[in-house]
Design a protein around this nucleic acid. Structure first.
Lengths: 209, 209
DNA sequence: TTTGCAATAACACTTTCGGGTTATTTCTTA
DNA sequence: TAAGAAATAACCCGAAAGTGTTATTGCAAA
């Protein structure tokens, strides 16, 4: 028996999901809630295996909900069930530990299958969601290069390790004056005026590792 | 008609996949290859919509293959079909632009469905793979916090934007001396001795955004 | 072959950092 | 309520960092 709790402020929808689960072999609905206000109390009472969680709910929403649940008990699987497919909310959910992400526009059968999947350690996602997730990994080669020379990239890399001018000079076997010179050119090309700024930009634009 | 090319060094397996596709409505196998040696020539001749790509192949493997294909033509969907579920190879594939990742241990029906999915812009993944991908997003709370106070994190964040002490003082409306003091404490907690080092560590350990 | 860029180096000078010390206020917790 | 963080602030001082200027060497492109 898989115990499922539902968080969904649309009563019509939560009723529907509940009925579907009740009519499916092996599922038991342990609770239905309109928001995550008492989510920690809820789960300690209901001890669900899987939580089906909407995002947009009054009072305490699903974003905060998934964080609270996961901090309290990592064993409980949280399946997001929402209309949103914008990447901001999506990635925020994933960062907070959601185990799956199904859009409401998908079929009900898919939701049931997804609950089974998370329960078995899978990570069900709507195709549109999976696509965005994969794309986040796909490093675009559109990263600007700022026309840094080979040597300049090397110096910037060393700076980004946190090295001082002196240490950079020592490890590249050039004078500190030349290091100064290079950095001066680098700062110009990156449109920055300090080491911290350069390092910041270098990390953000993935000019260094 | 979806045109599919197959890259797979195990002839028995590639035959099997080919036969399955030929017996499925709407698919046409345009080519079967043992490695990616001439992948660019192959695709310009065969003009496939989808490529089913093994990773472990002699001469030129699937890792290099997917990169070449995607650099040449982003429109061609590449579906990895491999025995490997180790995260190193998995993430390398995703970075290189693979559109889906199916394990050979999954059913043949799943492979066919996956080919349909990539063709329709989805991102099919075996459950075990999807799980790893999601976990990569899940920032573990095991990232050291270094016991920074709220204020210290704020100051570190500002420093990581590339701000000078003076600017940090201005934007937080505290004196530069206090900024100095905070940074001094931060450097001690992070075990570093300069702003660049602190920024570097902050980015690497994801203490800032 | 000359022009130009990249890399190297030195000197001078100002500003910013980083460390040490000390002190007050506020807020939390034992 | 007393102890203890946390945030605030000031002062000193030496060490880095950042800027400007000038110059030499080597290499590649025009």
């Amino acid at each position: 028996m898989t115990k499922v709790s539902i968080y969904e402020d649309n009563l019509r929808l939560s009723e529907l999901v509940m009925m579907m689960l009740e009519n499916t072999e092996g599922f038991e609905v342990t609770g239905v809630h309109q928001n995550c206000l008492n989510v920690l109390d809820d789960i300690s009472k209901e001890q669900p295996d899987v939580i089906v969680m909407d995002i947009d709910m009054p009072e305490v929403n699903g974003l905060d909900g998934v964080l609270q649940v996961k901090q309290a008990n990592k064993g409980i699987k949280v399946l997001m069930h929402t209309v949103f497919d914008d990447d901001k909310r999506l990635f925020e959910c994933l960062k907070r530990g959601a185990d799956g992400y199904i859009l409401k526009r998908d079929s009900a059968t898919m939701l049931i299958q997804a609950i089974k999947d998370v329960q078995n350690g899978g990570a069900p996602m709507s195709p549109a969601i999976a696509r965005q997730v994969l794309q986040a990994f796909h490093q675009t080669e559109s990263t600007k290069e700022y026309d840094l020379t080979e040597r300049e990239r090397e110096i910037l890399q060393l700076l980004s390790y946190g090295n001082s001018y002196k240490l950079i000079a020592a490890s590249t076997k050039i004078s500190i004056e030349t290091v100064r010179r290079h950095l001066q050119n680098i700062y110009q090309k990156l449109h920055v005026q300090s080491a911290t700024e350069a390092v910041s930009k270098a990390f953000r634009e993935k000019l260094v590792k």
